[in-house]
Design a protein around this nucleic acid. Structure first.
Lengths: 193, 193
DNA sequence: GTCTATACACCGATAGAC
DNA sequence: GTCTATCGGTGTATAGAC
């Protein structure tokens, strides 16, 4: 049933999802959906939770045995996320953009999003990347590649080809020793004025 | 009249713009809008052109007397664009995201977008940044900061504070001499494998 | 150009029978 | 749980009077 909702969102657009269309795909009438969801917003909410849970699973699989070397580990992480995000525009809009005005996930549905970000920052930390700003910059950098790819070259690879270079640029900027040791200390990161 | 459309888009959401609401704000009835626009899509199209034309004007003012020094010039450009983009979520969605399924600007409306990107690449080139991938990476980097700011900290400055650092990171990665001379040659940019 | 009137389709949501 | 019927509302767009 959520699968049907995702299909509609992908085909018609996230905001153009309708109860009638979802119901039809599962062989039901629109009012019957209210036996499963309290409202249309509740469907979005469940989709939001499912999307972040999916990422959590993809990430758990992929991050389990990351290379100890910082640069290689970040490249793998970046590609995993990039492929996941780019493969579904509607899902990415629900997860990371304010496409639905006023939509706010419930605390229960927001939880997997928090876990996913936590998993990212934990993994970064294990590889020597510490500090909120370092994480924020990584999020913006990889997210920017995803958004550019989806907006300007959907189905192509114009920004995907920049993922490795972007990660290298980022690691160079961190200015930590790239030894694979979790305890890197040297920090010559440039300070913004 | 376009101003009324922008107001509705900002308040209700880009996709939630309705002819009735726009008409009401200009003291008209919905059908009267068809004297000015052939369809709702034509309104979006005019808004798209206006948005990119605005950026073109802001950019022309700002890029006229940029510092010759690469790093400083890119910082100014980045802040100019960041402030412009972050100040209007609906406008940014129309310009840079696929929020309206199936919307494609007409060639006439797409023209100012091409001009704006051309202005960017010309300016970058004048400061020694050449190559499509260099431009693409800049677009993704600054766009990523914008999108992160709008999605995760609307009204705040959590990613705005990273603009200067991001530009420095980018310039360092270009690996060109930062002398203010338009003819920088050294290129030790890392190649993705 | 703007109006009234209206067509036609669609929306989310509820009531109540089965 | 699922249905039919329906509510009250919205949407874009057109016809034709003024």
């Amino acid at each position: 049933m959520l699968a049907a909702a995702w299909a509609v969102a992908r085909e018609q657009g996230l905001a153009q999802l309708t109860l009638r269309e979802v119901a039809e795909r599962v062989g039901m009438r629109a009012p019957s959906l209210y036996s499963h969801f309290a409202s249309k917003n509740a469907i979005y909410d469940a989709m939001y939770a499912q999307a972040w849970t999916e990422l959590l699973e993809v990430g758990a699989d992929s991050y389990e045995n990351l290379p100890s070397e910082l640069r290689e580990a970040l490249r793998m992480m970046a590609h995993t996320y990039f492929d996941f995000a780019v493969s579904d525009l509607a899902r990415n809009q629900l997860m990371n953009q304010r496409t639905l005005p006023g939509f706010e996930p419930t605390p229960e549905s927001y939880a997997p999003a928090v876990s996913a970000l936590r998993m990212l920052s934990d993994t970064l930390e294990q590889h020597g990347v510490r500090g909120q700003e370092d994480v924020d910059l990584y999020v913006a950098l990889i997210g920017g590649l995803v958004d550019s790819q989806l907006a300007n070259d959907p189905g192509g690879d114009r920004w995907e080809r920049l993922v490795d270079r972007a990660v290298d640029m980022y690691v160079d900027n961190l200015g930590i020793e790239d030894t694979g040791d979790a305890d890197a200390i040297t920090d010559r990161r440039r300070e913004a004025p």
